[in-house]
Design a protein around this nucleic acid. Structure first.
Lengths: 251, 251
DNA sequence: TAGTGGTCTAGACCACTTA
DNA sequence: AAGTGGTCTAGACCACTAG
């Protein structure tokens, strides 16, 4: 434990809550190297007296530091600064929305039809082979340039207010604006790298064989049945995920 | 607000903390559709009386639900169930470690040399063009199969205990086992899709032009100077990021 | 004005680690 | 046995939203 560097006070008049000020102050000490990986933080009690706050406030601040991955706590031992861990990096899909909502986005519906499910579609949607399913192809345009190509298979259920609603489900409007499907409970997503097939390349106006991201999705309803399965093919030059780890990741 | 479905009690004898039991019970109600997107949750006070817990415990549970993206709170209005938001999806690099630490991993050092920095390297490492930099090439093998190719440029500083330590920094051992660089403060990471160049393809034993992930990284020390810049080229068939959104993402 | 969430207090008790 | 974090209480006061 380093000799106490300098204990700034909590500003009670600030709009910033006390626990956040604590988080920020400790984060800065870690960022500047005043606290190094492995160092022990002051104990809960020490924080309380140093900053004249209650234990709950200290604990809240420490919990946030733990979630940020900056420190780790061990029950009877103490709280310690963690070294950089590359495994903690997380890439947020939200980033794409931000990248894209800055410009003009158009969604072109290329196809919307009823198809009979082949083996693959049947398996993904958990329906019998040959059952009818809705098939949709869309193209997302950023200005004049195509950015993503979307293929999606949807459960066809004549009892539901189908197509119109379903066209909204996982719609790119939803993806880009904010919220999708009201009737959906959970989704699974995955990302891989692929090379573009001829059809995809033509639509995206890049050479066949170009690299691209494939963002696959499958959504389930409240009965936990699959509702939709599909994937976005994203031009690599329009799709990049970035993130930061360590101190100063945000503040 | 739906007519109270059924208020299970908190089990005080359980190893599971009260706030977690609350989180789980509400999560389940959302997962089953007992609580639908847009529905208002009981207020803090109602939770307190229903489950006989203190306000702080309720607030802690609700905060967790907010972080999980299942509900949102508005100051003077209440707490409401959120619809699925695809933008909340986050992909964790940790996943790769898990995928890989299951098998045998070898790291082959292909090259470690001193080079004079060209314009690109100089810019990334914030050093003058022509300055010496350490250059490292490694190959990560999963059993017999090559999985990743790593190129990295490191600051050459004769005052530091350089090479041996630097070889550990952002080493794949670090990447795969747990913790990397003790002298690092923060890092920036990004992922793109690329097609393999001839050299890369040969090393990874796949055809030239195959799709792959490129995971670029740059790390900074406590003075916020770049220390290392490089990238992993990952075989697409060994590298897939997956995630879940919505209720039941974990519990 | 009534109801809501947001913050915070000043402790308590327990479980765990270390010596 | 001493010190640590983990949980929890039973309130308080404030700021915001709504009718």
């Amino acid at each position: 434990m380093p000799p106490d560097t300098q204990a700034k006070k909590i500003n009670r008049a600030s709009f910033e809550p006390a626990y956040m000020q604590l988080v920020r102050m400790v984060s800065e000490q870690i960022a500047t190297g005043a606290l190094r990986p492995g160092d022990q933080l002051p104990t809960e009690g020490q924080f309380c007296t140093q900053y004249a706050v209650s234990p709950m406030t200290v604990r809240r601040a420490i919990n946030i530091l733990v979630e940020k991955g900056l420190v780790s706590t061990t029950h009877g031992r103490g709280t310690f600064v963690k070294p950089l861990d590359i495994g903690r990096a997380t890439f947020r899909l939200q980033e794409l929305k931000n990248q894209w909502t800055s410009g003009e986005i158009d969604v072109a519906l290329l196809e919307a039809s009823i198809q009979s499910a082949d083996e693959r579609v049947a398996r993904k949607l958990a329906i019998p082979i040959g059952e009818r399913a809705i098939f949709i192809r869309r193209l997302v345009l950023q200005g004049e340039t195509p950015a993503m190509y979307h293929r999606e298979y949807l459960i066809y259920d004549p009892r539901r207010p189908v197509v119109e609603d379903q066209l909204q489900i996982t719609s790119l409007e939803g993806l880009l604006q904010g919220q999708s499907g009201e009737g959906l409970r959970r989704g699974e997503l995955s990302i891989e790298a692929v090379t573009l097939k001829e059809e995809e390349a033509e639509l995206l106006k890049v050479p066949t064989g170009t690299a691209a991201f494939r963002l696959e999705h499958i959504f389930h309803d409240f009965e936990n049945h699959p509702v939709s399965w599909g994937w976005f093919i994203c031009r690599a030059d329009r799709f990049k995920l970035t993130t930061c780890i360590g101190a100063d990741a945000d503040a």
